[in-house]
Design a protein around this nucleic acid. Sequence first.
RNA 1: GGCGACGUGGCGGAAUGGUUACGCAGCGGCCUGCAAAGCCGUCUAUCCCGGUUCGAUUCCGGGCGUCGCCUCCA
Length: 469
Amino acid sequence: MLPRLYNTRTRKKEEFRPLDPSNVRMYVCGPTVYDYAHIGNARPVIVFDLLYRLLRHLYEPEHVRYVRNITDVDDKINARACELYPDLPLNEAIRKLTVETTAQFHRDVAALGCLPPTDEPRATEYIEQMRAMIETLVEKGFAYVGEEHVLFHVAAMPDYGQLARRSLDEMRAGARIEVAPYKRDPMDFVLWKPSKEGEPSWPSPSGIASPGRPGWHLECSAMAGALLGDVFDIHGGGIDLVFPHHENEVAQSRCAHGTELMANVWMHNGHLQVEGEKMSKSEGNFVTINELLKDWGGYGWPGDAIRFNMLHTHYRQPTDWTYDSLDNAHKTLWDWYGHLADVEPSRKLPDAFIEPLLDDLNTPGAIAELHKMAQERRYADLLASLQFLGLTGRRDRLGRLQNGEAQARTLASDAEIRALIEARIAARTEKNWAEADRIRDELVAMGVVIKDAKNPKTGEIETSWEIAR
RNA sequence: GGCGACGUGGCGGAAUGGUUACGCAGCGGCCUGCAAAGCCGUCUAUCCCGGUUCGAUUCCGGGCGUCGCCUCCA
């Protein structure tokens, strides 16, 4: 069965056929490394990681190439570097910021169970290719120089706006941007711009004397072209990137390479809200991945729970990130994982689980199958399926850290818990219910929940315990 | 203002021109000294108004609402 993917370019779900099944190529826009990645940034990383896993499953791992860039040249980076390291020379501050932020990003997404992409190019390593692309565009008449900038001339491309389905006239009418005097058309966008003294800069293309740096959209065109070729299979990112970022990427790449397409399939994930509100620093509901892992809503959450909660909603739907749904996701995994300790995963994934995923990554449908497997106690299938989704299946990896007082008390008293449980068993044997209940209350106050179960063989009561969830 | 997405039970969230997904919560039961856990069972839904149709939640039109993009943005 062929996978079907929703293609933003055609606004339809289509059967996916790679250009070359022995070299399936996907490009996803990665982070701009100037601050901690937030939970909204995590969505495309997780979604396209799952797609990567699905493609590897279908075409064999060695036949899939997944490129996700690191944007390390950007005005936001410059601003943040000045703010954080005012005493360092700007370029040194920028290097420090981008290196540290990249490392943090890697730790965060690894905790969320994401595989590293096959290639992770940094924009600053591809300046040469960007410059060459600009030269080509100028030579072919798609770009021009004005006041030391190089601009892409949208009117030179007859079907500019095709991806976002916007006509130039509409966009010109609705444009809210200030039109720079060196632009021939308000919608023309920057390929290269001059750098101020002290800012990162490289020798400029197209006969511009002073040094400069690339514009906002060029890096992806250059890196995708260099690593995946002129035309490749899948290009992904957040829905907000459709315009202008991806539209402009398409324009640059197609005009430079003289191709009808840049990528066959364009995929975009929906946006995420937090507790019903748009995430913003001013609202105080800005949630970083790191914060979730360390302390959010009183707990440090395991990566599995974060990932599972994310996959609970279809990737194109808008989603609301809430404490309740995360808690729910955690609880579900906790229940399942309790059955999987000594289970060997199945060799083959159940068809009923894979089929929804082949239908435009219908993760809620696949998760419904997981519930069915758990209900039918098909634990080998359940574990294999969970692992396919990038989840560990291991309860010892699912501990939810409690923060503050409760955590301190619980962690300090491991041996004490055992002693109290023994004392309670003794009290129960004597039918001293008051004492037994008192001990149980004491354990609850420590954040420990006990469970009695009858051993089916001996009939003995056995008590287990866990940290309260 | 322009373009677009979406609106399913208390909550999350699939599917579908006709036969009440699924999970959580709730409720009932079994078990239990009590509780928790476990097991079994179970109630509640398709934003509004028209149209097409034997029949629409599903298709079409209108309305209302939510959200996004048009400016850096996942």
